[in-house]
Design a protein around this nucleic acid. Sequence first.
DNA 1: ATGAAATTGCAAGTTACTTGCAATAAGAAA
DNA 2: TTTCTTATTGCAAGTAACTTGCAATTTCAT
Lengths: 145, 145
Amino acid sequence: MNLNVLLNKLKANGYKTTEQRKVILQVLVSNDQNLISVETILSKSKEMNPKTNMSTVYRNLEILEKLDLLYKVIAENGMTLYKLACSDKHHHHLICKGCGKTEVIDFCPLKSLIQLSKEKNFNLTEHKLELYGYCKDCEYNKKQP
Amino acid sequence: MNLNVLLNKLKANGYKTTEQRKVILQVLVSNDQNLISVETILSKSKEMNPKTNMSTVYRNLEILEKLDLLYKVIAENGMTLYKLACSDKHHHHLICKGCGKTEVIDFCPLKSLIQLSKEKNFNLTEHKLELYGYCKDCEYNKKQP
DNA sequence: ATGAAATTGCAAGTTACTTGCAATAAGAAA
DNA sequence: TTTCTTATTGCAAGTAACTTGCAATTTCAT
């Protein structure tokens, strides 16, 4: 995903192209293989445009998230990490606990995933699988409000 | 997992049995099928012992986590939800987005999980699979510091 | 009963993020 | 190109969810 594609998607949704926005997007584009923190996004943005403000970063991340252009992970310490979303196709990630580097994995069944991470020389230490949805009771209550 | 088992595990690790601790554990024990927030733990604890304090709740949760007696999920809004850990055996959960009720699932491959949630009348809407570990580079750096 | 060590409550502090508002910038329309 | 509406920004103050320091209290082995 490059800068202009992103700016066009934003424009198509009524958002304007500003210097600060361009810089923030540029930072995300050039780190599109790694999960990075807001702190990092801010400091790298400031390198390119010193007047970039924290609120602006948060507000732009919020917009990107709303447009499904952002992938977000909440770390164990409660800190939020971001990267640009890569594609609409369903996929998962290998996430390096050392550097935050991510690798896309195109399919789902766990057995094959474990095999795949071996092939990629990724030392898989933990995994977290959370299934969300509605239980029988809540589903019933949704339909009978 | 009942109250006395928990208190004994704590005792075995040098932690004392206090009124507040008992109450907090009791709240967790009686909600062991649901993920609950700290706010809920605190208010339910206060019902049983009005002088229970927020710091005390946090400090006790910290201890339980350190002893691997607690299962913790960080929700999308950044709030942390807890329940007692159920067993040492590797397993996953179905988590209801409505009420936080959890159901244990004993095996792993995703296909069977989807089948299983159907059998349980759980309307699976999303899932999140995150694989953590170390990439080739970080693994190398760990070995050559 | 005594005393060392753990625990607690309180209040103040911290961190990560949010919000209100006035000033500024973007870009469509005139 | 100027005008004008609307989005965007920076700032500073606010909030939510924890965390911490410390003195007072409680537990429990002796």
